[in-house]
């Protein structure tokens, strides 16, 4: 095994073959007996000062009372915003207005109001012998219904 070649490869942090790796392991083992390694192992660890420690405690205590908002918020906010946006788009946007009665309405309030008026008119039936034109004018009932048109080819009220 060419020792110089391995050392060169090690210096350039090149990939070693398995054999070369084993040789490097052996050299590391050999180094264990060197005095430099023993001296490093014996180096003392400095304890930081009490002032340093109390400053750490103070900063940790401050950090502990801070609400952990950022990451929680980042986790929760996107789905909530997305859900709200989808709901708004579905209810107010074209996706909802095309499929619901009262498609002309531009807001939920006007749609509900219109829907309520139609429903009220539908349940007020004229008595026998009532003046039909007067009844329609009073109730504001539309004279032509899309449903009548679809089912009977014209308004039932007109046929009466």
């Amino acid at each position: 095994m060419n020792r110089e070649k391995i050392v060169q490869k090690v210096q350039h942090e090149e990939r070693l073959t398995p054999k070369e790796s084993a040789f490097l392991e052996a050299m590391l083992e050999e180094q264990r007996g060197q005095e430099a390694v023993a001296v490093v192992k014996s180096l003392k660890r400095d304890e930081p000062s009490l002032a340093w420690r109390s400053s750490v405690n103070e900063r940790i205590a401050k950090s502990a009372v801070k609400p952990r908002r950022s990451r929680q918020f980042i986790k929760v906010a996107p789905p909530v915003v997305l859900a709200a946006a989808l709901t708004a788009w579905f209810v107010l946007g074209y996706g909802g207005s095309e499929n619901l009665p009262g498609a002309n309405s531009t807001s939920i309030t006007s749609f509900l109001y219109e829907w309520h008026e139609e429903a009220s008119a539908a349940v007020i039936l004229p008595d026998a012998g009532t003046d039909l034109d007067g009844f329609l004018n009073r109730t504001g009932h539309q004279s032509r219904s899309d449903v009548d048109e679809l089912l009977y080819g014209g308004s039932v009220i007109e046929r009466l």
Partner: peptide
């Protein structure tokens, strides 16, 4: 592998320095 290479080089440099001192 890089850890081992760096450890080997570091120990060698240190050993040389200590030898010079001795």
């Amino acid at each position: 592998g890089t850890v081992k290479s760096r450890l080997f080089l570091a120990r060698n440099q240190l050993q040389q320095a200590l030898k010079r001192y001795l």
